[in-house]
Amino acid sequence: MTSIGTGYDLSASTYSPDGRIFQVEYANKAVENSGTIIGLRVKDGVVIAVENLVHSKLLVPGANRRIQTVDRHMGLASAGFLADGRHIANRAREEAGNHRDTYRSPPTLKTIAGRLGLYIQAYTLYSSVRPFGISTVVGAVDKDGPALYVIEPSGVFYGYHGAAVGKGRQLAKTELEKLNLAEMSTREAVTEAARIVYAVHEDNKEKEFELEMSWIGDETKGLFIPVPKDLKEEAERKAKEAIEGDFE
């Protein structure tokens, strides 16, 4: 941590002499320690899967969902500070609603990701605010087809075929690269997503976790909704089998 004690890391409005904004880099640290989130953009849809770390046995299973719905056809999940994630989801809903009111049509994911990028970037400009401590995976099927973006604490956003953020992102990305995402159906993607989240968790092995998955595709009638119980259980069963297979 060369930045500590130099004074250049105290405010997001000041560059360090070598052109970095340390506050933004620290925000990225907040993301790196979060449970893994992956997104898969496939032939007919998008799947978002979250490794929802359970920090207390007192929590009600299945409550405290991390994937949030933005519009009929759009959803997101944020890794990092959960409260920041909720705020950005509300902002996304507002943006989507404003788009509908202005243009009488559902927004594309590209527009929403762009708006969220601008919003998050604005929090890297002033000494009076702190940057968002989240990386947000947004997915949708819009008029241009399936789309998947990740918006980082700096405000940059990229479109992906497969995306991973949080603690297990390296392994998850390696696994995602092995897949033929462009040819895959959303149903197959659900199985793969579950497998990757389980594999990533196995690699780190710490707290208990709940797998959380939402999808949109040909099977969901244009709605971004939680993966149905039976399909999710089937995917989890296969995921556990795959892990056990690796040990043999």
């Binding site: 949030q68 719905t69 009929r72 989507a96 509908r100 709605l223």
Partner: peptide
């Protein structure tokens, strides 16, 4: 309807 849907 969208607002109700997004609250899930």
């Amino acid at each position: 309807v969208v607002e109700e849907f997004t609250s899930q």
